[in-house]
Design a protein around this nucleic acid. Structure first.
Length: 103
DNA sequence: ATAATGACGTCGG
DNA sequence: TCCGACGCCATTA
């Protein structure tokens, strides 16, 4: 089936919906998203982002250590500086930027 | 059915 | 702090 961004499966919709909910200036790790949804895992979330992430604020979904998504590091940095995301050098400051799901 | 791959995570050196 | 090895899990070859 190759999904190919025509009809994303329910799981992908949940991931994308949550990513859209992430407040400006905050971020979540792939593992956090999976844990928050209570389903799938970091790799599955990463797959969803690579396929349909272009329609959501993908720069707010990063690695657990604060490093941006592979191949989009420059874009992430630009967005973060634009939004005022707490940074620590070239990485996001997870201590302050991590979103727990509460506004 | 087995092996390789990937927008990951954790651990050891 | 940086890097490599391993573990995970769905998809692809």
């Amino acid at each position: 089936m190759r999904d190919g961004r025509g009809q994303p499966p329910p799981y992908a919709e949940r991931v994308l919906d949550l990513v859209e909910r992430i407040p400006r200036g905050k971020v979540m790790s792939y593992g956090d998203v999976a844990e928050y949804l209570g389903e799938g895992g970091p790799r599955q979330v990463g797959r969803v982002m690579s396929l349909w992430g272009g329609a959501v604020p993908w720069w707010r979904v990063i690695h657990a250590d604060g490093t941006p998504a592979a191949g989009l590091e420059a874009e992430c940095l630009a967005r973060w500086r634009e939004e005022g995301t707490p940074l620590r050098g070239d990485r996001a400051d997870m201590r302050a930027a991590r979103w727990d799901g509460r506004d």
